[in-house]
Simulated assay, not measured.
Amino acid sequence: MLRDQISEGNFSSVMVFVLGFSELPNLQGLLFGLFFLVYIFILTGNGLIIIITRMDSVLQTPMYFFLANFSSLEICYVSVTLPRILMNLWTQERSISLLSYATQMCFFLVQGATEAFLLAVMAYDRYVSICNPLHYALCVQLAVAAWFSGIPVQIRQTCQVFSLPFCDSNQIRHFFCDIPPLIQQACWDTALNEICVYVVTVLFAMIPFLLILGSYVQIVSTILKMHSAEGRRKVFSTCGSHLTGVSIFHGTVLFMYVRPNSSYALDHDMIVSVFYTIVIPMLNPIIYSLRNKDVKEAVKRVFGKKIIC
């Protein structure tokens, strides 16, 4: 029935979407100020990690090489969405063209895939350094693979989603361009698209997560064999920050994408999506720096004064 209506032209092809916080008109200024401060904090905190890992010779190790890559990714990740959100809040102009929506969504998905694989690479690095200490020359290759592995698949998925026809309503109750709220607007059977989303999520979330889990099984096994309590404490401290980031990222991503489209709850999922688009990049400098003695000492050496007490 629906296919017949579409073939007869009884639908409106949407070329412009409207997204944002229209239901909170009295909080636009507050939200702008909050997101602006968060954006500055993310740029400053992650930028600081990149600077000190490049300038301090003590931190010229694979672990901090990947941490610098992760901080660079977080800056790129949040810069895909937050500047547009800030512009919408400041100008109250919430419309976005089909092409702009597709572009932002594609970059967002590619960088999400990069984060999943980079977290897996960081877990492998910890496994190598703890369980089988050696110097290996694969850092750049692993980082490049993590950055570029998701591009072909996510471009294909973006094209597939935007091959759907979208009906009269162009109101997207979301604050950035993502797949779940867009599929809700399609006037076509989206079962195939939902299956593809599940498959891609398994490929770029579950597989890296299983690799991370396997690495940490080996790490824990090695830690339990250590005779030094101080050594065990140091290893647990180093791995704890990474596990925190992994738990937040994979937990929210799996909640958002691995479930039936019918269970999609806009209000709740807008809150959940804040975690993996804004909160994780904001927490990165805190998780990996404030409890890391090496990073604190590097900041003092690089900047020549006691910044962190």
Rank of each mutant, 00 (worst) to 15 (best):
V110N: 08
R301A: 04
Y39A: 04
L109G: 02
V235E: 13
S247H: 04
V279C: 13
P281C: 11
M256I: 07
L37W: 04
T114I: 10
V253G: 06
I51K: 15
H242T: 03
R54V: 09
G112P: 00
L119D: 03
R233N: 14
A68G: 03
L86R: 05
L243E: 00
V253I: 14
P25I: 01
V110R: 02
G33C: 07
L138F: 14
A229F: 06
C159V: 11
V144W: 15
N26M: 09
L59G: 04
S215L: 02
I172A: 02
L59C: 07
D267P: 02
F275C: 12
S57T: 09
Y77Q: 06
M282R: 01
I85R: 02
A205P: 10
F175W: 15
T238R: 09
S262R: 13
N193M: 03
M55R: 12
V272N: 14
F41C: 13
F107S: 11
W147H: 03
S215M: 06
V279I: 13
V253C: 08
I75L: 05
R94P: 05
G45Y: 07
T81V: 15
T44C: 10
R156C: 07
L24N: 00
I307D: 05
G214M: 11
F70C: 05
F70S: 08
R233K: 15
S237D: 09
V78F: 00
V58E: 08
M256E: 07
G231L: 05
P165N: 03
S263H: 09
D4V: 06
Y216L: 01
V253P: 03
F108A: 15
V140E: 15
K296H: 05
M15F: 05
I85N: 06
S215C: 11
F36L: 15
C167S: 04
Q28R: 10
C239A: 07
Y64Q: 10
M270N: 14
N170S: 12
A120M: 04
D267N: 12
R54C: 08
L24V: 00
Q184V: 13
A298S: 10
V153G: 00
E194M: 13
Q141G: 11
S215R: 02
E23L: 00
V200Q: 08
I212R: 11
C159L: 14
A186Y: 05
H250C: 07
F21E: 14
N284G: 04
L19E: 06
Y216S: 01
C139T: 12
Y124E: 08
Y101C: 08
A145S: 12
D294I: 08
L142I: 04
T103V: 15
G245H: 05
A113H: 03
F236M: 12
S71Q: 03
K296W: 06
I155D: 02
G240C: 13
A298N: 05
